[in-house]
Amino acid sequence: MTARAILKAARGRTVATAESCTGGMVAAALTDVAGSSDVFLWGVVTYSNAAKTDLLGVRTETLKAVGAVSEEVAREMADGARARSGADIAVSITGIAGPGGSEHKPEGRVCFGLATAAGTRTETVEFGAPGRAKVRAAARDHALALILSALQP
């Protein structure tokens, strides 16, 4: 299990999460493992744009310019979570789990941010439209893999 591997690899480093479409699934996966309190500082679910702004400092200008499902917003979410929590690593997730979407932002598009002391990187993954539960689970697993990759040398 990736969450267990994260706790083992952490070696004194800490993690925070900022989630939208996964609704706390990454935080839940981490805290399902005994001993997670040594690594996991906090997680926030910012489903609305107002929550992204109020809790993580995502700029309203960014949301208006590119929308919530964007690498720009994922970057600001991850940066805000890392800065506000004091964690060594913060991961963010924002996307369209479905059903629905649009021509420009299809169902299954999920943007991730990973903030560390070395900087913040973002990426977009197109999971397709296998259904809401599968998109959310895939996004959770991808975010856990990102955290683990940041902890490994």
Rank of each mutant, 00 (worst) to 15 (best):
T22A: 02
V110K: 08
K64Y: 10
R109Q: 13
H104E: 15
A150N: 07
E61R: 12
G12T: 11
T124P: 03
P153C: 10
A150T: 02
P99Y: 07
L55F: 03
W42F: 12
G100T: 06
F40N: 11
A9V: 09
A137Y: 07
P106K: 10
G95Y: 07
A5D: 15
C111M: 01
L144T: 03
E72V: 14
A133S: 07
G12F: 06
D88V: 00
A18D: 08
G98N: 06
S36G: 13
S85H: 09
F40T: 13
I147S: 08
H104K: 15
A50K: 14
G80H: 01
A78S: 10
L63S: 11
K105F: 10
A138G: 01
F40S: 12
T31H: 05
K134L: 14
V91D: 00
A5V: 00
E126V: 00
A16T: 12
Y47T: 11
H104T: 15
G119P: 02
E76C: 13
V58S: 05
A90M: 01
A34Q: 14
G101Q: 06
A65N: 12
R84H: 11
R84N: 12
G131W: 10
A16C: 11
V33G: 07
S92C: 05
G119L: 03
A90H: 00
T14Q: 11
L148T: 12
L144S: 09
T122E: 08
T31P: 11
R4F: 02
L151G: 00
L30Y: 08
S48A: 04
L30R: 08
F40C: 13
R140P: 05
S149E: 14
A139D: 01
D54N: 13
R59A: 13
A34D: 15
A51S: 15
L30D: 02
I89P: 03
A97E: 02
V69K: 02
M1C: 14
A133G: 04
R75K: 15
M77L: 12
K134G: 04
L41C: 13
G98L: 05
A68C: 08
V135S: 00
L41T: 14
L7M: 08
G23Y: 09
S70T: 03
T14G: 06
A51W: 07
G113N: 11
G98A: 01
A118D: 13
L41K: 15
F112T: 01
E72M: 14
D32S: 15
V15R: 05
T22L: 06
L114Y: 03
V125F: 00
G98T: 10
V44W: 04
T53H: 14
T22E: 06
L144G: 01
G12K: 07
D32P: 14
T17R: 05
G24F: 01
V33F: 04
Y47C: 12
R84E: 08
G23T: 03
G98K: 04
G43C: 05
S102G: 10
L146S: 06
I96C: 09
G43W: 00
R13L: 11
G128K: 07
V39F: 09
K8G: 10
